[in-house]
Design a protein around this nucleic acid. Structure first.
Lengths: 249, 249
DNA sequence: GGGGAGAGATGCCGC
DNA sequence: GCGGCATTTCTCCCC
């Protein structure tokens, strides 16, 4: 098979877009191989290939949330024709990572200079929950007083540190969703560090989360800690039922 | 501003693609709001909007690896024109998640029926490392004998469980990369569970990884565990220097 | 379907 | 740069 005229036009478009650091989108029937932190092989199929102006590469199958192959920013990308086969070859030498895409058929090519320096604003994360508790520790337990938020210990960062009504230190670990083993692990690590570094026997530990798995609860209680059922803070709901459009653009 | 003829053509293309479950790509100057597990707002800028045939939505800025906004598969997407403003509205009612995209300017629209049922083959993960150690525990320490791999405990799964030359149980936690606090936490949890469930005093713990952070090492040793420097297994390198193309398409 | 843990995790913030 | 950790994490595997 000879590389056809139509294909040459597509290749030309791709090369121009790469040269000008445009955002480039290719729809293609392709095969992919990756080598780097791991190694992957993907047989022939239709995919969307996206190369961004920062030289990030993303390859998406027509299903699923995650790219099936990708390269990080600052990679380099070239079209190479060898023995009538058309390859998109990407490499990131510092990271020792490589992706080769064999382009069997190019369905479409699109490119444009896209400008976007905006940052997303997000509300409703774990930090918001820690803020809520730090502001009013009594929602966890009557008599709790804030000692420090984001306390830096040698063994990690404590979400919220308090004194209880008996002046015992209380380490609080927040989770937005159901707490699991890992949450208990963290809490335990902080409590043990505080005990050691301050030379005190009694340091309490509390997990604040909307719920906790049965197994994690057992582990928690085995260690003498406790669970406090706390809902993460509500953010203003902009998409109420019946609301027809966003009001704050 | 009146919705122009050109824009109407683009909207028509989008609606047709959505109707036919094609993979759809839109380049647009847009503003985005999301509400669901959290809430986000993204001011005006150029982005690539991808809607897959499984009704996944991805919005990419011209930089970075991750989508700035997204919706999971089986969401529904509609173009809605209100007061001369053009919105792409996505919703996933079961998940209670919503994305609204205000399309200020559509740079391009592309759609195609893409077919891809292939699965990726991957080699070089943590399991390979655990396999290597299970097959030959002596690479960790002379005299180690395998007891079980992937041992299920009530407090999680142990990568590799061995007996040492003195018949002490040894829990081995593998990490492909530099081990951190979390790795030590896991090891500690498993060791304590084994001690308790089997009623034995002496259970050893080893982290097998190429390296470990100083802090994690301190925590490890505070708990009487040890570190074994182990490189993850090499996979066959298909992208050797000087190799010009993939040989296995 | 939930639980547990890895991921070619990524991204953010801190020192 | 590394460290520590959340993530609208996602994905896989096992019970």
């Amino acid at each position: 098979m000879v590389v056809e005229k139509q294909l040459l036009t597509e290749i030309e478009k791709i090369n121009k877009a790469l040269e000008k650091d445009e955002t480039l989108i290719i729809g293609a029937d392709c095969e992919i191989a990756y080598s780097g932190r791991a190694e992957t092989k993907l047989a022939r199929g239709d995919r969307v290939i996206l190369i961004k102006s920062d030289k990030t590469l993303l390859v998406h199958q027509p299903h699923g949330s995650n790219p099936i192959n990708y390269m990080k920013e600052n990679s380099s990308h070239r079209i190479i024709v060898e023995d009538e086969l058309v390859f998109l070859k990407s490499k990131n030498v510092p990271l020792n990572e490589f992706v080769d895409v064999l382009l069997n058929k190019i369905h479409f090519v699109n490119s444009a200079k896209l400008n976007d320096g905006t940052k997303i604003e997000l509300t409703g994360n774990e930090k918001d929950m820690a803020d809520m508790i730090a502001k009013n520790p009594a929602i966890i337990e009557k008599g709790l007083r804030l000692v420090n938020q984001e306390e830096q210990t040698e063994y990690g960062f404590i979400d919220v540190l308090c004194h209880d009504k008996n002046n015992n230190l209380v380490v609080i670990e927040c989770k937005r969703y159901k707490a699991d083993f890992k949450a208990v692990d963290q809490l335990k690590r902080y409590v043990e560090k505080i005990k050691k570094s301050r030379g005190i026997e009694t340091v309490r530990g509390i997990i604040a989360a909307p719920s906790i798995s049965d197994n994690a609860k057992a582990l928690l209680e085995d260690n003498g800690f406790s669970f406090s059922a706390i809902e993460p803070p509500r953010y203003k709901e902009r998409f109420r039922k019946g609301q027809k459009r966003l009001g704050e653009f």
